[in-house]
Amino acid sequence: MTTVLSVSGSPSPTSRTARLLRDLDARLTAQGHEVVPLDVRDLPPEALLHADFGHPAIVEATALFDRADGIVIGTPVYKAAYSGLLKALLDLLPQYALKGKTVLPLATGGSTAHVLAIDYALRPVLASMGPAHITPGWFVLDRHIEVRDDGGIVLETDTRRALDEITDQFSAALGSRRPLRTAA
């Protein structure tokens, strides 16, 4: 079984990004992956802002990245880039924290003007961290994510279809590799 770390870079506790990730987590779990959620907003702000590499929460977050076979990174788009909160965490990880891993980048935003944020802002940073493979990412408009009263989401039909497809591609990329923990 492969382990997937599902990272939400949203600072909001009512984040559509985090809800979208938890929805994708359920699909990946149903496909046989162990999914570990990580909401960066739950890490101590002092540790992130003061670059406290030795803080126990940062050490644990780094260990989660190390143990994962695949990483899903979700972020809201602000000012045509990924969130500063996500940037703070990525800056604290080792240079090659994604070495040998399969990565799926996702972004949410209010306008199609931000659709290229994945390819021009997030993907280069992820690529610099040594992943074996970055699968095609996806941008979701906020208005295509309806939040239900129970906290779950309903996605616009075409968005659901596209997200299911990219999630399945990510899952297949994970399935075509031996888990890193057992590789010799």
Rank of each mutant, 00 (worst) to 15 (best):
Glu146Gln: 12
Thr157Val: 13
Pro76Tyr: 08
Pro131Val: 12
Gly74Trp: 00
Ser12Tyr: 01
Asp158Tyr: 08
Asp52Gln: 11
Ala173Phe: 07
Glu34Lys: 14
Asp150Pro: 00
Val72Phe: 02
Leu89Pro: 01
Trp138Lys: 12
Arg41Pro: 09
Arg160His: 00
Arg19Tyr: 13
Leu64Gln: 09
Leu104His: 01
Tyr78Lys: 08
Arg16His: 07
Ser6Ala: 13
Thr159Ala: 06
Val77Tyr: 03
Leu43Val: 12
Met129Glu: 07
Glu156Arg: 11
Leu89Met: 05
Lys101Arg: 02
Arg161Ser: 15
Arg41Gly: 13
Leu104Glu: 03
Asp25Trp: 04
Leu43Trp: 09
Thr135Ser: 11
Ser128His: 02
Pro13Met: 06
Ala81Met: 15
Thr112Lys: 05
Arg19Val: 15
Val40Arg: 05
Val140Arg: 01
Phe65Met: 12
Ala88Asn: 04
Arg16Thr: 13
Thr62Gln: 13
Lys101Trp: 02
Pro13Glu: 07
Arg67Ile: 15
Pro179Lys: 11
Phe170Cys: 07
Gln169Glu: 06
Pro45Lys: 14
Ser83Ile: 07
Leu20Asp: 02
Asp119His: 10
Glu34Gln: 15
Thr17Pro: 01
Tyr120Phe: 15
Thr14Met: 14
Ala81Cys: 10
Lys99Pro: 00
Leu104Asn: 03
Gly32Arg: 09
Ala113Cys: 00
Gln95Cys: 02
Leu86Phe: 05
Gly109His: 04
Leu90Trp: 01
Thr17Asn: 08
Tyr82Val: 09
Glu46Lys: 13
Pro37Thr: 12
Leu28Trp: 03
Ala47Thr: 14
Val140Cys: 01
Leu85Asn: 10
His114Leu: 12
Gly100Trp: 01
Gly175Glu: 05
Ile73Tyr: 02
Asp25Leu: 14
Asp23Ile: 07
Ser8Tyr: 03
Val125Pro: 03
Arg41Cys: 09
Ala68Asp: 06
Leu21Asp: 04
Gly109Gln: 06
Ser8Phe: 07
Lys79His: 08
Asp164Phe: 01
Val125His: 07
Gly110Ser: 09
Lys87Ala: 11
Glu34Asn: 14
Glu165Gln: 10
Ala61Pro: 11
Gly74Pro: 04
Val35Arg: 04
Gln95Pro: 06
Thr14Gly: 11
Leu122Ser: 09
Thr14Lys: 08
Leu141Gln: 02
Asp119Val: 14
Arg178Lys: 14
His144Gln: 08
Ile153Cys: 00
Asp158Ala: 15
Arg19Gln: 13
Val147Lys: 00
Thr167Lys: 05
Thr157Ala: 11
Ala30Asn: 04
Ile145Met: 04
Arg181Asn: 15
Pro37Ser: 11
Leu21Ser: 08
Gly32Ser: 09
Pro13Gln: 05
Met1Ser: 14
Val103Gly: 06
Asp69Asn: 01
Val35Gln: 03
Val147Phe: 03
Phe170Ser: 02
Ala97Cys: 10
Phe170Ile: 08
Val40Pro: 04
Gln95Phe: 12
Leu92Arg: 08
Ala63Thr: 12
Gly109Ser: 06
Gly110Arg: 08
Ala88Arg: 05
Gly84Cys: 07
Thr108Ser: 09
Ser6Thr: 12
